Amino acid sequence: MTSHTLTVGFDLDMTLIDSRPGIKAAYQALSARTGTYVDADLAVTRLGPPLEEELRNWFPEERIAATGDLYREIYTTHAIEPTLAMPGAREAIAAVHAHGGRAIVVTAKHEPNAKLHLSHLGIEADAVIGWLWAEAKAEALREHDATVYVGDHTGDVRGARTAGALSVAVATGPCDAAELRAAGADVVLGGLAEFPAWLDAHMARQTAQER
């Protein structure tokens, strides 16, 4: 292990959690409340960017702020219960802890809702930082001295690279392996189930380099 404490950052939606069922339910409720059609099935195929980017596909600009607030209010009732942990999510966090490290979550999602998801699913992160997307994620990654960032979107790759962290991408979200590699991911895994073995090998290489 390195002389510094290992800190690994993880994205949330489609990296640690499969939030598609919950987000679909929230959009359907939002549509019913506002009387504005939202194609919830389409919306959940492009998770990753901030909520407001998706809302702009359905609502005029002057309604975005208020609609975003309403969505986040609706979210706690409709989206937490149906959301599932991604395969290997708990094991990935445990793998970081097994190496004496810290596992943090850095997400574009509203931070209180991110914490609700993790608590509901029993995923024990050491810190949760919300409201950060793409390159802005580097702020939290640098603050916490993260050397690895794991995410499913090309925006996550950009965040890792901006922070000078190793970009580990998982092809479980809207971006396929080829897109993630093209964006500059250092490592592309099929999913988090592959992460513990990768981390073991990565830490072994780090140890060997320090000898």
Results as ranks from 00 to 15, higher is better:
His4Asp: 15
Thr5Cys: 13
Thr5Ile: 13
Thr7Tyr: 01
Thr7Lys: 03
Thr7Asn: 11
Val8Trp: 01
Asp11Gly: 07
Asp11Arg: 00
Asp11Met: 04
Asp18Lys: 03
Ser19Trp: 06
Arg20Ser: 07
Pro21Gln: 11
Gly22Ala: 13
Lys24Ala: 14
Tyr27Leu: 00
Tyr27Phe: 04
Tyr27Asn: 02
Gln28Phe: 07
Ala29Phe: 01
Ala32Met: 07
Arg33His: 15
Arg33Leu: 08
Thr34Gln: 10
Asp39Ile: 01
Ala40Asn: 06
Arg46Pro: 03
Pro49Met: 13
Pro50Arg: 12
Pro50Leu: 02
Pro50Asp: 05
Glu52Cys: 00
Glu53Thr: 14
Arg56Cys: 06
Trp58Ser: 02
Trp58Asn: 09
Trp58Asp: 00
Arg63Asp: 07
Asp69Ile: 11
Leu70Asp: 04
Tyr71Gln: 03
Tyr71Glu: 00
Glu73His: 13
Glu73Cys: 08
Ile74Trp: 00
Thr77Asp: 14
Ala79Cys: 08
Ala79Glu: 07
Glu81Leu: 12
Glu81Met: 10
Thr83Gly: 01
Ala85Trp: 00
Ala85Phe: 00
Ala89Asp: 01
Arg90Val: 06
Ala92Ile: 08
Ala94Tyr: 03
Val96Tyr: 04
His99Asp: 04
Gly100Ile: 01
Arg102Asp: 11
Ile104Pro: 05
Ile104Trp: 04
Thr107Lys: 06
Thr107Pro: 00
Ala108Trp: 06
Lys109Asn: 05
Glu111Arg: 14
Lys115Glu: 02
His117Lys: 12
Ser119Thr: 15
Leu121Pro: 01
Ile123Asp: 04
Asp126Lys: 09
Leu132Gly: 07
Trp133Thr: 03
Ala134Thr: 13
Ala136Val: 09
Lys137His: 12
Lys137Met: 10
Lys137Asn: 08
Ala138Phe: 06
Ala138Ser: 15
Ala140Gly: 00
His144Asn: 05
Val150Trp: 04
Gly151Ala: 03
Asp152Thr: 13
Asp152Ser: 11
His153Gln: 13
Thr154Gln: 12
Asp156Ser: 06
Gly159Ser: 14
Thr162Arg: 15
Ala163Cys: 08
Leu166Arg: 12
Ala171Glu: 05
Thr172Ala: 06
Thr172Asp: 08
Pro174Val: 14
Ala177Glu: 13
Ala178Ser: 10
Leu180Asp: 08
Arg181Lys: 14
Ala182Met: 11
Ala185His: 08
Val187Gly: 02
Val187Lys: 06
Leu192Asn: 08
Phe195Cys: 03
Pro196Asp: 05
Ala197Glu: 14
Leu199Ile: 05
Arg205Val: 09
Arg205His: 11
Thr207Ile: 06
Thr207Leu: 14
Thr207Gln: 15
Ala208Ser: 11
Glu210Arg: 15
